[in-house]
């Protein structure tokens, strides 16, 4: 008789524990979902960065700075043209390789590529950019 009472009591305790665990689990999921959603970064931020990056490569390309690379001239043009809130690094690959710009230190970076023509060499190259907010 005593033993069965003890067993019943144990079962009741187990049910309360499972109940409490399930309840806590559900509340934790709801709270987690809420915070994940509100802290989500907008995709349009990266789109804005990419567009500015592509624009900047176009400016360098039309200025002839991708086909005839000169690190100082590229950096000067980037500093003159790129809005203050951005930082950028570019890499040119073709007959030569060149990297210019600030080292990538940020976590949130947008990147893209542009193929450019080097008419004098009858060749083409690829420019890659990385851009981020300061």
């Amino acid at each position: 008789m005593n033993l069965s009472k003890i067993i019943n009591k144990d079962k009741k305790a187990q049910i309360f524990s499972i109940d409490a665990t399930i309840g806590a689990f559900l509340v934790a999921i709801i709270i987690l979902a809420f915070f994940i959603n509100i802290s989500k970064k907008s995709e349009s931020e990266s789109l804005q960065l990419s567009k500015v990056g592509y624009d900047m490569l176009a400016i360098l390309d039309y200025g002839g700075l991708l086909a005839n690379p000169d690190e100082t001239a590229i950096l000067t043009k980037i500093n003159e043209t790129l809005p203050n809130q951005y930082e950028m690094r570019i890499r040119l690959e073709g007959d030569y390789e060149l990297e210019a710009g600030s080292p990538v230190l940020q976590r949130f970076v947008a990147s893209g590529k542009r193929v450019f023509v080097n008419a004098s060499e009858n060749d083409y190259g690829i420019a890659t950019f990385w851009i981020w907010l300061k």
Partner: peptide
């Protein structure tokens, strides 16, 4: 507001 880098009369502008 968003900004794009462009050429205006062949000079870089925004």
């Amino acid at each position: 507001a968003l900004r794009r880098i462009i050429f205006y009369e062949n000079s870089p502008a925004q």
